[in-house]
Amino acid sequence: MNYLMSELTAGAYVIAVKDTHTWDVTSYTNMYVLQRPEQTILIDAGLKEYQTAIIPALAKIGIAPERVTHVLLTHGHHDHIEGAALFNKAKKVVHSADLSMIAPPLAPQFAAFTPQAGNFMYAVEDVDGLDIVLVNTHSPGSVAIFDQKSKALFVGDFFCYFGEDLPQGELVTASQRIKRGSCDYVAGQAAAPGQDFDKFMLGLGRLLSYQPEFFCTGHGVVLRQDIQTFLKNMWQSGTQKKKAKKDFA
């Protein structure tokens, strides 16, 4: 399978597998690698058939599958979990609300994130420097993961660019067109809000205090540069449109 691989910053990489047959549209499915002393962390694992791309991609940065120490899932959908079977020495973790989505024989290999203070923060007991935030949109246990070292915010399919072309073929970009389009999409959803949109805005609000340098989605382009402003602009797109409709009524 064809794939793209880019270094976000020292010790942080994105692997995007180009999938032309699983869905009705061609899309990229993203996985991320974080290297730490004595640890190699994979965030999301793709489909089982992506292994033919994941193995050579990891080899480019000197990582064999048995050296992966952790597989952390942003959520429990099959296109993010099946590839975890490759990493037989890794600790595998997902939010407890998504454990039931994982089918045997892989399901018993997964543990749940450890709850922290409050009702939406989580951790992995033997991994430092990661903030895990429940965003509970897309699946009951969808989380975003903020890496304090690389300043990368991994959001899974909470917000992603499924089926969209890469701008100028670039996987990692500061594209203002993509950022404006994202805000316009949120504004459009706010025009006819429902329970799912309210959950999205709740999850987005939980991310506004972070200062990420990368917005790392589950599918497609990775955004860089002034990501906190981008998140705040999306928030304003959702709240202003909703407020305008309420005032008009």
Rank of each mutant, 00 (worst) to 15 (best):
E66V: 12
G76H: 06
L73V: 12
K232A: 06
I81C: 02
G238C: 00
Q240K: 01
L171Y: 11
D44R: 09
F197T: 01
V17L: 07
S237G: 02
S182K: 01
F159M: 10
N136E: 14
M121H: 13
Q225G: 12
L4D: 11
P104F: 04
V33S: 11
I54R: 07
P212W: 02
E7H: 00
Q236C: 00
F120K: 06
M234P: 05
G169D: 11
L4S: 10
I102W: 05
V155I: 15
Q228H: 15
T22S: 13
F162W: 14
V135G: 02
V135C: 03
D98P: 15
K179F: 03
H75D: 14
Q51T: 15
H70K: 14
Q225L: 09
I41Y: 08
A16N: 06
K151Q: 14
A152Q: 08
A84N: 06
E82V: 01
D165L: 07
L204A: 01
D98V: 14
K242N: 00
C160F: 08
V127G: 05
A103R: 09
L134A: 15
S175T: 10
D24H: 12
S139R: 09
Q39C: 04
M5A: 01
E125F: 10
Q35C: 13
P115I: 04
C160V: 06
F248H: 02
S150R: 09
S142E: 12
A84K: 05
F230D: 03
L58K: 05
R180I: 03
P104W: 04
D19A: 04
Q168E: 12
A191H: 06
Q236W: 03
L153G: 09
V135N: 03
L34Q: 13
S142C: 09
L86G: 06
G220R: 10
F197S: 00
E38A: 09
A57S: 11
M101N: 13
V186A: 01
T9H: 00
A84P: 07
L231D: 07
T74P: 09
S150E: 12
L134H: 13
Q109I: 01
V25I: 14
S175I: 12
V221E: 14
H219C: 14
A187M: 02
K48E: 14
S209N: 01
G46E: 10
P104A: 10
D19Y: 05
G194I: 03
A97E: 15
T114G: 00
L34K: 14
A64C: 12
L202P: 00
E7Y: 00
Y122P: 08
T20N: 13
L207A: 03
E82R: 02
G118T: 06
W23L: 09
V133M: 04
P167S: 04
G141R: 08
T137K: 06
A53K: 09
Q116D: 03
Y32E: 13
V222I: 15
A244T: 03
Y210H: 05
F154D: 08
G169Q: 11
N2W: 13
M121Y: 11
F162Q: 10
Q109K: 08
A187G: 07
A249Y: 04
L171G: 13
W23R: 10
A53P: 12
D79T: 05
G156C: 11
D126R: 12
S142N: 10
A152N: 07
H138L: 04
D44H: 10
A16V: 08
V71E: 10
N136D: 15
D19H: 06
A190I: 02
